[in-house]
Write a protein that binds this DNA or RNA. Sequence first.
DNA 1: TAACATGTGCAACCATGTTGCAACAATAAG
DNA 2: CTTATTGTTGCAACATGGTTGCACATGTTA
Lengths: 142, 142
Amino acid sequence: MRKFKTEEVLEDAGLKKTVIRIKMLDFISASKTAVSQPDLEKIFGKIADRVTIYRILSAFEEKGIVHKIIDLHGTSRFALCNDKHCKEHDHHDEHIHFNCTECGNVTCLDNVHVPVIKLPKNYKAATFNMSVLGVCNDCTVK
Amino acid sequence: MRKFKTEEVLEDAGLKKTVIRIKMLDFISASKTAVSQPDLEKIFGKIADRVTIYRILSAFEEKGIVHKIIDLHGTSRFALCNDKHCKEHDHHDEHIHFNCTECGNVTCLDNVHVPVIKLPKNYKAATFNMSVLGVCNDCTVK
DNA sequence: TAACATGTGCAACCATGTTGCAACAATAAG
DNA sequence: CTTATTGTTGCAACATGGTTGCACATGTTA
């Protein structure tokens, strides 16, 4: 769909290409759903410290490589940024996130357009954040 | 707008009318915005334990008196349920929440209708959860 | 490969969420 | 009015996620 060379991305962001960063970024980019920090800790916890993972995610977010989503349980999840969104430095952009109640995965639905809604008077909307709760493709098919 | 008698509500829910519960419910019902547990702790922390506040909120939620919202920082906020929504025991209902970036308040916009969105194939939406980030009425006027 | 800038691990801390248990208060029964 | 029952509260304790400081290790550049 979209070319994505891990090492290039890190280089462009001015981040050193360390083993953990490359692995984490590979993993996040391979994952179709937004991954949580606990997820990443389970996977990379043996080769990297919890704090390191935390800091790498923060760095990725700051550089616009990934964006952060707060899921329905209040924990952070991370997903790759799409170019179109991440040109702006504001990352509360017009994504729609789909929370699957079966598998718990959070998916970015980039191809679903955000509807226009009308706000009460004197309310000024800056950005939208919409999440849909339901059953995702994988769990429907199973 | 809507009649709301604190003590009746507690009675209907089968909860004993204790001082703290009445005060908390009064406070939540008087508040136009969704209040966080930390907020409530600051206010009621001297007359009630942190755990008590937590349990009262859980009880309120379970009985359908209030509903819980996870705000953009991942902390829980609570707001009164409207009758129309809370007849269903599923509380992830079609509310739209407005997060004000100035004052940090979260407001339920009940009078704003939830738009219909089209999902990719095999995605089954159960409920929606939309939040809008911007500047609220109060902060616009100021 | 040496020097420097950056990245990492460890320890520690804070906030929120959560449970178990004992003490306590309110209500109903005698 | 006193006791039994039930539900409510406070305390202590723990789990998890987020966050910082500092010393040490590593990647990068010359």
